[in-house]
Structure formats: structure tokens, C-alpha cells
């Protein structure tokens, strides 16, 4: 990004190739709509392009890009009315994997999926988002803190609380199975 900020136009393709797949996955999970996800990826990349002169040497690009994409997503939800997106089976499987669930847990994933999905939706917004950014989008705690505009300690606490809440659901489900 430093090269691009200094005027090397060819560097943008490399930035796109590094960021776009991760942004798209993040956006697709929230929109469930490939066209919308691609539209926001495009807007995000164009905003990065427009702001290239402001880029601070050595600053991290990933949290910046995720923050822009997240804000565009929020803007779009506001314009189109809020919609509650229930997690799909794919999401829940990813969630189970991200929580290091064992093979036996994966076999009962279908049953657990509903309860885990409900638990995820019941989490306070700040805990759910922190958990998703770290566990599902692969951001570090420091990067997630930048995206959410808060401190590393706050993100750690939020993610930990979310993790514990979801872990409790898993343990309960496992206990229920006997």
C-alpha cells in the first residue's frame, strides 16, 4: 500500500488480490447476496483508492479495509431497512470448526446448529461482532480493535464472553446427548 500511496498504480492489483477474497467472504456472510457483497467490495476498494494519498506509512491495511466494508454494510442496511440474518448451516459448521469442536460435535452439528445460531444472535452486538471478526474473519485482536474503534482489552473481553456463551451452548448440547 505504501508503494501505491507513493504513486505506483500497478500495486493496486496486489492490494486487491490480498484483500478482496477476505472482504467478500465477510460481506457474503452478512448479506447472503453475492451481488450485494461484490458491490460493497467494489465500493470498499474504490474508497481505499481515493484515500491513497492519506495512507499513513506503515499503517495496517486489513483493519482499515474491514472497517470501511463494515461501515458500508451498515449504511446499506440502514438504507434498505434492517434485516436479521440467521446463520446458515455453512456458517454454523465454520463456527464449530472455529471453536475447535471435535468430530463427535460435528456429527451432531445439525441439531446444535439451531441452538448455536440462536445463541449467536442472542449475544450482545458488540460481543458477536468481536467474535466474528476474530474467529471467522481471521483478524487479530489488535486488528479487530481498530475495526471496532475500541481498545484491545475491550475486544478481548467481548470475544471471550461470546466464546464462553457459545461454548456453554455446546457443552449443554453435548450433555443433552448424554
Amino acid at each position: 500500500m505504501d508503494r501505491y500511496a507513493q504513486g505506483d498504480d500497478g500495486a493496486f492489483a496486489e492490494i486487491y488480490d490480498t484483500l478482496a477474497p477476505r472482504l467478500y467472504a465477510f460481506l457474503l456472510r452478512h448479506t447472503r447476496d453475492e451481488a450485494k457483497a461484490e458491490d460493497i467490495v467494489q465500493q470498499t476498494m474504490l474508497r481505499i483508492h481515493r484515500a491513497r494519498g492519506r495512507f499513513i506509512p506503515g499503517a495496517e491495511v486489513t483493519p482499515w479495509a474491514f472497517a470501511i466494508a463494515r461501515r458500508l454494510l451498515i449504511d446499506q442496511h440502514r438504507r434498505g431497512g434492517r434485516e436479521v440474518l440467521a446463520p446458515t448451516d455453512d456458517d454454523v459448521s465454520e463456527l464449530l470448526v472455529s471453536m475447535d469442536a471435535g468430530a463427535d460435535e460435528l456429527t451432531i452439528a445439525k441439531e446444535v446448529a439451531v441452538r448455536l445460531g440462536e445463541a449467536l444472535q442472542r449475544l450482545p452486538e458488540n460481543q458477536r461482532v468481536a467474535f466474528e471478526l476474530i474467529k471467522q474473519d481471521g483478524l487479530s485482536v489488535a486488528e479487530a480493535a481498530q475495526v471496532l474503534g475500541t481498545t484491545v482489552a475491550a475486544v478481548k473481553l467481548r470475544a471471550h464472553r461470546a466464546y464462553e456463551a457459545l461454548r456453554a451452548v455446546l457443552v449443554e448440547a453435548r450433555g443433552g446427548k448424554g
Binding site: 467472504a25 465477510f26 457474503l28 491495511v61 486489513t62
Partner: peptide, 12 residues
């Protein structure tokens, strides 16, 4: 990309 990491832990 100036700190952008390849892949991460995201399966999606």
C-alpha cells in the same frame, strides 16, 4: 498490502 495477511483463519 501493508500488513494485510494472506488467508488468516477464515474458512469462508
Amino acid at each position: 498490502a501493508g500488513g494485510a495477511r494472506e488467508g488468516g483463519t477464515s474458512g469462508a
